[in-house]
Amino acid sequence: MQILINKSVAFVVTMMTVFAVEAVAQGVSYQRVADMLYLVLSADRAVYTEKVVQRLTLDEQVIMVSEHFEDDAALPLPSQMFRFGSEYVADETEDFSYSLVSLDPINKKNGPGTDLEREGLEFVVDNPDEAFYGEEELGGQLYFAAVYADIAVAEACASCHNNHQDSPRDDLEVGDVMGGVIIRIPVE
């Protein structure tokens, strides 16, 4: 009898552990997917910024970089390249989405659009080395959301944002948090 009770308790404990691990694993997996996506996104943009834009515009000085790159036969800005990618993804899938947002956006539509975006952006301004994770419901769907700090890595980033006539800031310096990248994954 004692053996039976012991075995039952052991079985229940084991099952609970499995459930807990499973649940944690579920939670972690969204976070890990977001972290991995962010790594790809930021890596691609870094490569574009360094190997294409900086090399061709500053080092070799063979082409300009311009917001109106088509009119000016120039290279798109790294942030534009990033945004085009995000729109490309949005056109292809609803499995995840990402965008570049800021508390001080040049284009007002890139300002914090939801409570979570504001919270996340404020968090990464204070903790540039950490990511902010949360969940929010949009359009009747629950999303896992992760916000990562977007830092002015080059002088060009800061100066452009300081000088643009639609920008609310003119005091940005290299190393400052200009905004954040938010990645959303619908929670099934």
């Binding site: 729109e87 949005a90 056109d91 989405s97 965008s99 659009g113 939801t114 949009l138 959303r184 619908p186």
Partner: peptide, 19 residues
């Protein structure tokens, strides 16, 4: 036409309030 309001811009869930 470099559409100013392309579908892809609005598919992002952060635009849900506008839907």
């Amino acid at each position: 036409a470099d559409d100013s309001h392309p579908r892809k811009k609005f598919r992002n869930p952060r635009m849900a309030a506008y839907w």
